[in-house]
């Protein structure tokens, strides 16, 4: 008897099924077949992740090609005690969140009164944002309120977001925004 695990089985059968199914609908699969043959599960590194959609927290395994660094496949993690490898439609589609031609890959900027986006460099954008933050903060900062109490706040800048960030990013963000003096700090949890 073969002694491979369910996970090994999924790895092998997934690839084969894809090539087999398409062959029957009249497409020329030669280039795909040779690409598929080049793809080797052995050259993929596996990492675990948790689904970024609802809050059940299902486990997934991501296969990344070690040579190209591209994600080859994302599937459910059979070892995860909550989902035991199963996924809903969204988790099952997670590959398309990673590999998607519509992903924003550059900084976009809309100038005042403009009707279009332009692309910008990171340094330009971050310099400009920092300058905007400083101006808004300096213009609106209140050190002491009318009762003479030290409040060190600005009501001129607001922030929302995000339940989609990692815990560590959330903590850093609340720290930064509070250090800037913001009181309008909100996100998805409120609504």
């Amino acid at each position: 008897m073969n002694n491979f695990s369910r996970r090994d089985f999924l790895k092998i059968s997934g690839m084969a099924a894809m090539v087999g199914a398409l062959g029957s609908v009249g497409f020329d699969l030669t280039p795909i077949e040779s690409y598929a043959v080049e793809l080797s599960i052995k050259s993929a590194k596996q990492t675990t992740t948790i689904c970024p959609y609802c809050a059940v927290g299902c486990g997934l395994i991501v296969h990344t090609d070690k040579n190209t660094g591209k994600i080859l496949d994302i599937e459910g993690d059979p070892d995860h005690p909550i989902n035991e490898g199963s996924l809903c439609a969204k988790g099952a589609a997670l590959y398309q969140l990673a590999e998607n031609p519509s992903r924003i890959t550059q900084v976009f900027y809309r100038a005042p009164y403009s009707d279009r986006w332009e692309t910008k460099h990171w340094d330009w954008a971050l310099d400009r944002i920092a300058a905007n933050v400083k101006k808004s903060r300096d213009d609106s900062f209140v050190h002491k309120n009318t009762a003479g109490q030290v409040v060190n706040r600005t009501e001129g800048i607001a922030h929302v977001g995000s339940a989609a960030l990692d815990n560590e990013e959330c903590w850093l963000l609340q720290g930064m925004m509070r250090a800037l003096g913001l009181v309008y700090i909100e996100h998805q949890a409120r609504i």
């Binding site: 959609y53 609802c54 809050a55 995000s162 339940a163 959330c170 903590w171 909100e186 996100h187 949890a189």
Partner: peptide
């Protein structure tokens, strides 16, 4: 409470509310 986002629990725990 069935929360709606993958880390809305964490973002609430970490104080991203006024």
């Amino acid at each position: 409470a069935l929360r709606g986002e993958s880390n809305v629990q964490g973002s609430t725990d970490h104080g991203l509310l006024f």
